[in-house]
Design a protein around this nucleic acid. Structure first.
Lengths: 203, 203
DNA sequence: GGAAGAAGTGAAGCACCATTCAGAGCTTCC
DNA sequence: GGAAGCTCTGAATGGTGCTTCACTTCTTCC
C-alpha cells in the first residue's frame, strides 16, 4: 500500500467533478444538448476529453447528471413555494410566478430542461421531472378544492395543463424576448394559471 | 430526344413519393424520429436506401415533408372547427375536443409531432406549426373577448397556454393509456380549456 | 529519494449513418 | 430492334463524435 487518497485529494476530485458538471450545464444552456459534445464540454472545463471518463462512464451519464442537478433544484424551489404558508390559491399564484421568473432569468437553461431536443436518456429524465412538477401542482389544486376555493376538477389534468402551459409560454414567449415586457408576461401568466384552476377572479 | 416522361410515368413517380412519405410517417409514429433511419424508412417503403434520394435531397428534407404533411392536416382541421358557426366559446370547446380526440386516436404520431426529440430541421418546423396552433386559438379567444364572453386577457398568452396544456396532457395522459377513460379525459380537458380562457362555468 | 499507483492526456480506434456512385434494369420513341 | 436516357440498387465512402488506451504527470508513503 503505497498510495491512498488523502481527504484533500478526495475533495479535489469531487470539486473537479462539480466544476465539470457546472461548466457542462453552461455549455448546454448556451448551445443546447446536440452541440454539447464531449470535446466542447471538456474544453469548457479546461480538461482533456478523456478526463471526462474519470468522472462519468459515458456522455449520457454526464448529461443526465447535468439535467438532474438543474431540474432537481427547480423542483425543490417550486415545492417549497407551493408548500409555504397562505391559502392554496395564493400559493399556486406564487408557485407559478416563481417558476416562470426563474425560467425567464435563465432562458437557455429553461429551454434545455423543458423542451430542447435531447438524447433518449435525458428525455426519460425530463419526463420524470415533468411528472414531479405535475404532482406538486396537483397537490396544491386538490387542497384548493378541499378548501372550497376551486371548483371540482381532475387536479391531475389541471396540473399537467399548468406544466405544459407554463413551458409553452416560456419557451417561446411571444416571439421576441423583449426585456421590458417580462413583468407583464408574468402577470398574464399567473392570471391564466388561476383561471385555469378555476379560482374566482379578484373583485 | 429519345426519352420523355409519359404522364403515366409521372404519376407512378409521384405515387412512389407519396408512398414513401406515408410509410415514413408510419415508421416515425411507431419508433420516433431518432430510430427512423434512411435504411429503416426505405425498407418500410420497399425500396433501396439510395432510392430515397430520387425523391428527396436529404433525410432532413424527407423528415420535414413527413412533418408538414401530418401537421398541415391537423392545422387545417383545427382551423375549420374554430371558424365554424356558433359562439366563440362553443367553437373553442369543439376545437380543443377535436384536436385532442384526433391526437388520442393516433398517439404515436401526435407524440412525434408535438414533443418527440427530433433533428433541428424538424424542430424548427414544429415551432412554426405550434405558432399556427397558437394563432388559431388566439383568434378565437379574441373573438370571445369582443363578444363579452371572455374576460380581458392577453389572447396570445392564453393561446400558448392552451397549446402547451393540450400537448402536455396528451403526451403523457396521466400515466396509463387507459382506453376506457378517454372520454372522461376529453371532458376534463375541455373544461380546463374553458376555465383557462375564463369562460363562465355552465350553470 | 524512490517505488507504487492514481489521475490526466489526446490522438487513434471504432461505430454509426447519411450520402454517393457505378452499374443493372426499365421506359420511350424512331 | 435498338439507341438514349431514365430509375433503381446496395455496397462503398466519408464525416462525426464517443470512447479507449498507452503514456506522462502527479500524489502518497516508506
Amino acid at each position: 500500500m503505497a498510495y491512498r487518497k488523502t481527504p484533500a485529494e478526495i475533495r479535489r476530485l469531487e470539486s473537479a467533478r462539480d466544476h465539470l458538471v457546472a461548466r457542462a450545464t453552461e455549455v448546454v444552456a448556451e448551445v443546447g444538448w446536440a452541440q454539447a459534445s464531449v470535446t466542447a464540454v471538456a474544453d469548457a472545463a479546461g480538461i482533456a476529453a478523456g478526463s471526462v471518463y474519470q468522472h462519468f462512464p459515458s456522455k449520457a451519464a454526464l448529461a443526465v447528471e447535468v439535467f438532474r442537478r438543474a431540474s432537481g433544484h427547480e423542483v425543490e424551489v417550486l415545492g417549497e413555494v407551493l408548500r409555504s404558508e397562505g391559502d392554496p390559491v395564493e400559493r399556486l399564484a406564487r408557485g407559478v410566478e416563481t417558476f416562470a421568473r426563474r425560467a425567464l432569468e435563465n432562458r437557455g437553461l429553461a429551454y434545455a430542461l423543458l423542451a430542447a431536443p435531447a438524447e433518449p436518456a435525458v428525455g426519460a429524465e425530463r419526463l420524470a421531472y415533468r411528472l414531479r412538477y405535475r404532482a406538486l401542482f396537483a397537490e396544491t389544486v386538490e387542497q384548493g378544492m378541499a378548501a372550497g376555493l376551486l371548483p371540482p376538477q381532475d387536479g391531475r389534468v389541471t396540473a399537467a395543463a399548468l406544466t405544459g402551459a407554463i413551458g409553452e409560454v416560456l419557451v417561446d414567449p411571444l416571439g421576441t424576448p423583449d426585456e421590458g415586457s417580462t413583468e407583464e408576461l408574468l402577470v398574464e401568466l399567473v392570471a391564466m394559471a388561476l383561471r385555469c384552476a378555476g379560482a374566482e377572479p379578484a373583485p
